[in-house]
Amino acid sequence: MRDNVITLKPDDTMNDVRRILRDNKISGIPVVDDDRLVGIVTIDDFIICLLEDGGINEKIENRMTKNVVTVYSDDPIVQVVCKFDRDGYGRFPVIDRDTKKLVGIITKGNIIEGLLKKLEIDYHEEEIHRYRASHIFEDVISDNSTLILKYRIKGGDFKKAGEQTSKIRKNLLRLGFLPETIRRVAIAAFEAEMNIVIYTPEGELVAKIQPDKITVNAIDSGPGISDVKQAMRQGYSTAPDWVRELGFGAGMGLPNIKNYSDEMKIKSKVGNGTNLQFIVYKEGKSSK
């Protein structure tokens, strides 16, 4: 409904009606006496009064419809829609059930506007994306379809650390993977993304998506890991304090990736960067 309703008093004249209808491009005005609705005056009432001598100077209370059909502000929209359909009115004044005061006005236009907005914002866009994307593996005919998504990551950019994983996550949702599968991929990818941001000048996440599994490679041009076995030990970390202050770098990253994925491999050479690969199967190999 619209609040801030334009209203008139019973002893205003039909001349006032003309002014308000014209200035506000509306077709009906509630008539209010001491906040209580006492009638409604519409463009039809105005046209009729024009046909009569002196009609334009008459008080509204002689011209308005007195038995106004109203709705309550807590009525369900469905009920209001039915009322429009049944009674054929263009608008209903909205009354507060307890105080009986006028609180707004509702037109068919308001209802349509509200519904469209809701559809648009909450649902429509993401739902269409999801619908389109979730059929991709069925629509493409091949013996083996693979979708490869690449995301560049800048080292040291803490403000954006996590953004690329978020995109991967959104895509997996759209592709129709189960929430638990997505959760495992997202947690592992997030840790891998954080490692690239913390330790390297730049890198990328490459997600290879197949109907039955998701393979992610986190490739960077950083310093490399001198002892992979040691780096895999929980609690082992070479992170400086400022990284720990951000909630990471406590030697949990690689163990986390291992725990949440079904397979994990690290190829690294000091001075040549690191290629970490993990795979999550749709059906899940581990019980995690």
């Binding site: 403000k159 650390a161 996590g162 953004e163 959760r183 997202a186 997030f190 954080m194 909630g247 990471f248």
Partner: peptide, 17 residues
């Protein structure tokens, strides 16, 4: 409940559900 207020808290929450 956390004392950390960086954007990574939100990313962490998103990924962990």
């Amino acid at each position: 409940l956390t004392g950390l207020t960086t954007p990574q808290v939100v990313y962490t929450a998103e990924n962990a559900g």
